[in-house]
Amino acid sequence: IMGRSQGEGAVARRVLDDEMLEQLEELLIASDMGVDTALRVTSNIAEGRFGKRLSSLEIKQALASEIARVMEPVARPLPLYPKKPQVVLVVGVNGSGKTTTIGKLASQFKAAGKQVVIAAGDTFRAAAVEQLQVWGERANVPVLTAPEGSDPASLAFDAMTKAQADGADLLMIDTAGRLQNRQDLMEELAKIVRVIRKKDPDAPHNTLLVLDATTGQNALSQVETFRKLADVSGLVMTKLDGTAKGGVLVALADKFGLPIHAIGVGEQIEDLAPFDPEEFAAALTGLDTE
């Protein structure tokens, strides 16, 4: 929608009127921001600007800085604690990128000099363990496994014992994908947490919910339920290297305020980046192609 004014050159100005606001709203909705949040963001930028003549660049800048302002407080790297082991539990719906993200994170921590152990807590999906083992090799980190079909909670318990005995700095636990409306599977997750706490009442120190950027408004329900049942402490959004913009993160920041630790930008081991509110806002509004 901004393309037209761009064609007339960046200096062409248009009056910020209702029609224009509606177009801006649609730009944001098309990023998966959701109707309510899109309305709020556009009405915030309209304040003090309504009726004024603005260039498309100025409008995009205003939108982007409003979004960056909302996202600033949630852009936080994964906190590290002086705990041995610091336990990082990774949860999310099917196929969101949990296993891949664990491989990437393990590699980054390893490079930072940490001793990392991974537990293959997805004992359900075909070849989930083999997949994680490959990531373990790539990151040069040991992977603890249990047979397919065995209880993930007991694997988590064994992994805690082993990581404590080895004096590991970090224990990352992968889990099977589960949809948040599956009560039985959510209870299985709650059980994993209970068992981990038997070993260390403060663990898991981080529970990461991995969200797929192509997901639409259902991400709100994912965060709500996983937070309630698994005490999610932070988010990672994957697949932001595609055409999906991940605008739902703005709605999530608004509603839940959970920190966003990192974003996935590809399938390779180095494709995990810190969440940068300004870059995110620029990509979302199209300011980055200006």
Binding site: I29, G95, T215, N218, T243, A244, K245
Partner: peptide
């Protein structure tokens, strides 16, 4: 296609 897909569905379908 993931049934939980959002606005990106048009790009994926078209491309």
């Amino acid at each position: 296609v993931d049934g939980l897909t959002g606005q990106d569905a048009v790009h994926t379908a078209e491309n």
